[in-house]
Amino acid sequence: MNFRRKNIKKQHCEVIVGAQCGNAVLRGAHVYVPGIVSASKFMKAGDVISVYSDIKGKCKKGAKEFDGTKVFLGNGISELSRKEIFSGLPELKGIGIRMTEPIYLSPSFDNVLPSYLFLQNLPSVVVTHVLDPQPGEKILDMCAAPGGKTTHIAALMHDQGEVIALDKISNKVEKIKQNALLLGLNSIKAFCFDGTKALKLNTVKDAEGKPPFLPESFDRILLDAPCSGMGQRPNMACSWTLKEVTSYQPLQRKLFTVAVELLKPGGVLVYSTCTITLAENEEQVAWALRTFPYLQLQPQEAHIGGEGMVGAGLSLEQLKQLQRFGPSVVPLRGTDIDSLRDARIEDMIWLANKDCIGFFIAKFIKCKST
């Protein structure tokens, strides 16, 4: 949960970062050197710096000033001088600006007990409990990077069984492997592989257990599908086009079809997104129930989010079995942290459960063989 700080004094010395880096800062990160686009002419290590994000990507690398559209992110202390930042040395990848006064009170947990903790948003924790993995099972995480849900699945199974994690981007797969190693989880096997091609079309069994896989190979499958990401917050700007948003539905259906084929009869399939559109959520559930009559929608435990959204032709009972999260507590907008210092811990927990990213969860069971 993020609370906006007020009355932060802007400094004359400025650093401009890219939009991706800016979003990370809004969510509690420090500014790392690769994210810095420009810095004031005489910036030295130890200076108090105002950090801005170039949301339109117009600032030139290495510029000494920038008058274009920029969003203030807060103040920090420079770890390096301007000359060091733009020296071109490839080994400079650490913290460039240590944020001391971010505009949102969302503290960084970077490297805090890394062998024990993996920080996730509330709905991302809930979705793994909804999947309810059991020791000894074979489970597929189809779109797994960076591995938060994957490692949570393995932990809930007490690291007993097999967790297959797929992602089609190699450096993201390496991140999954690193996280599994860091947390001491041996049940995870991560592969660089496109989930849409994970179903083996012939009947020759692969003795090495690598993708693609034979039909009905998995006890449970998590499809945390690629989506428009419109539930991510805080965010600086909404730049989605209609074409971009509508492009995800066919991909999600292709992945879902493969997941159904790979699931054993009696197995559980959980579909989730971090977006808020009807087309990527409830409409996908309605399509799945029409397309695969042997799938049944299931109630979810834990269920602490809201019900599904009307408009996709689902019954009221079906909508109650779905789970939506979002920033539903309107009075929190503009709230200053000082006004919450005397709040009861119970109230703070309630607010945290309500004021979160947009997220959607649906749980299915496969009643018979395809």
Rank of each mutant, 00 (worst) to 15 (best):
N7I: 10
P250Q: 08
M309D: 13
Y116A: 12
F72K: 08
F218L: 04
E244S: 01
A144M: 06
C274W: 05
T246N: 05
Q284S: 09
L251V: 08
L122I: 15
L105K: 07
F364I: 06
P215W: 01
L242D: 08
V51R: 09
L113A: 15
P123I: 03
T275M: 03
E79Y: 11
P265H: 04
R82E: 11
L263K: 07
E216N: 14
I95T: 14
P123M: 01
L119E: 13
N7M: 11
S81K: 04
Q321I: 05
I49E: 02
L119A: 14
Y248E: 00
T246V: 01
E79N: 15
H129G: 11
R27G: 11
G18H: 13
P146E: 05
L297D: 06
G74K: 13
A190I: 06
L92V: 10
L289G: 02
E346P: 03
K197L: 14
G57P: 15
V125I: 15
C356M: 14
M348H: 02
V15L: 14
S369M: 02
T151E: 10
G305E: 00
G334V: 02
L89I: 11
N179G: 06
C192I: 06
L105G: 05
R98H: 06
I357M: 09
D54W: 10
F364H: 08
T100V: 13
N7E: 15
P102Q: 01
M236S: 06
A279I: 05
D336A: 05
H152E: 01
T277R: 07
D110Y: 03
K197D: 09
C21Q: 12
P265Q: 05
